[in-house]
Design a binder for these strands. Sequence first.
DNA 1: ATATCTGCAAAGACTTTGCATGAGA
DNA 2: TCTCATGCAAAGTCTTTGCAGATAT
Lengths: 156, 156
Amino acid sequence: MPWRDGAGAPWLHGKFKGCGYRMTMPRQIILDVLSGTADHLSAEDVYHKVHNAYPSIGLTTVYRTLELLVHIGLIYKFDFGDGRSRYELAEGSKSDRHHHHLVCTGCGRIIDYTDFIDEEIELLKKTEKGLSEKYNFKITNHLIQFYGLCDRCQNK
Amino acid sequence: MPWRDGAGAPWLHGKFKGCGYRMTMPRQIILDVLSGTADHLSAEDVYHKVHNAYPSIGLTTVYRTLELLVHIGLIYKFDFGDGRSRYELAEGSKSDRHHHHLVCTGCGRIIDYTDFIDEEIELLKKTEKGLSEKYNFKITNHLIQFYGLCDRCQNK
DNA sequence: ATATCTGCAAAGACTTTGCATGAGA
DNA sequence: TCTCATGCAAAGTCTTTGCAGATAT
């Protein structure tokens, strides 16, 4: 069976094979789904979207693939406090800018922002360096989120 | 039954009553436990510690009390990625400085740090102001965490 | 006195695991 | 061919809910 013309098909094969993993239909389609949305999908969201193109897929496979993709570094896993994990493509995969999140504690809406990112990055670099030295802690990642009420939820 | 000489007994009564809640033994002891540790306890951690002083307490009450304390703003709830929520006293309660966390993805160890906090706060204020205006988003809280490997886990 | 709080048991929600079948390289 | 991946079902974990009895004010 030929590969679908998925978003990241060409170089993803290499990425998978290089790590000793096989490129399969479910994996391809899950990546397509993640590439094709700007939302922050939960495992079940992904499952439902994938189901359209590939009805026989199981939720287990979705979980296992997402875990794998996080491990490879192709996607990020987030917790926004609503009890389920959410996933989004890592920057390298798309022409996505590095961003952080505004989380509405009223309705759960997530807003991506890139404002002040340059200054943020600068401070983060400095902080990472300082913390690495002081605590001998090898920093690989960071998380910044703001919580509050979105415009809709303020008027209630 | 007289009140225990708990850490925050005096002013907490007021805080509870002012919000229409009753100050009970379980609540008092849970607060004592949270005040008496620098760790980031899970609900079950709290349950076990409270159990020593008050064996009849139920895990349900711990969950309900923690939720209440978060709601009142006396404690913060965190997710460090290990599947369970963790709690720590808010700054006002103790003479605790505002801090953020280093999370070791190897062993789950949490390190509090206060380095660069002043610069961080400054940038955060600026960012909060900018984001509030741009997205009409009323920011109430923020979260900053660094992930990586602690000294022990790097040598494995 | 009475509205709130508690503990137990059961249910709920999300995620992981075991295992036989199926599919990629 | 032979290992890796999948799907189903079942189990696992953390957390929430329902309800009768206990408790604070």
